[in-house]
Structures are given as C-alpha cells and as structure tokens.
Amino acid sequence: MKNAKILVVDDEENIRLLFKEELEEEGFDVDLASNGLEALDKLKKGRFDLVVLDIKMPGMDGIQALNEIKNANKDQPVVLCSAYGEFKQDLSSWVSDGYVVKSADTRELKQTIKNILGL
C-alpha cells in the first residue's frame, strides 16, 4: 500500500523536524510547511491524506488556516496540535477532525492520525 501523505504545519523548525522524523518512523510520507499560507499553497499543488496544524503561528494562525483548508475541501482531514490546553474557536468556523496537545510524547498524535486515517 502506498504510504499516507501528511503535511506538518508549524512555525518552529525543530518541531517540524521532530514530527517529521517521528511520523516517518511510523511509515508516513511527511511534507512540511512553516506557516498557514505555505500550507495552503502546498495543498493546492498536491494531495495530502492529513494535515497536522499548529495553532499559534505568525501571519495566518492555525484556526484561520483550518477554515481556508476546509472551505477549499471540506473532506480534507486536519488535526490541530497546540501547546495550549485550550483554544478559542467561534462556532461558525470549521471543526477539526482531531485535537492534540503538543507533547514530547508523540504517541497521542500518532494514534489520533491513525484513527482518522482508519489505520
């Protein structure tokens, strides 16, 4: 089976690197974007099975990016991943498919992704 393609969006380079290595170890193909706009650009050009989206980013934040992504393709799976224990999201916006608190322990993130992809 072809590897699932995952786009990791985070403004911290080392977080991106960590997630990339951790997810590749699980057999995913991982591409990276450092902000919302770059992510939208990559989604326009290619197909991804899932997007991991940080919330607090300069420029376009994760919530805005989520809305843009879902407006373009409401079936695109997105997992929000943030250092915050909570975030504010107004009720009219799109809802993510999963939400994970950012942690050094990446097991929850991996499990959430697998659940959404039905793996």
């Binding site: 911290e12 080392n14 977080i15 960590l18 290595e21 951790e22 607090k56 250092a83 915050y84 950012k102 942690s103 050094a104 322990d105 990446t106």
Partner: peptide, 21 residues
C-alpha cells in the same frame, strides 16, 4: 503566565521529543 508557559512548551517538546528519539 499563560504566554510564558506556551513559550516554554515548544522548546520543551523539542528537547523531550528528540531525547526520546
């Protein structure tokens, strides 16, 4: 406090994540 905690959280995830690796 929240903003400091958030700023600390990212480096901590990086340290922890790579140390685990």
């Amino acid at each position: 406090t929240a903003s400091i905690a958030h700023e600390i959280k990212n480096p901590l995830v990086i340290i922890g994540g790579f140390t685990k690796r």
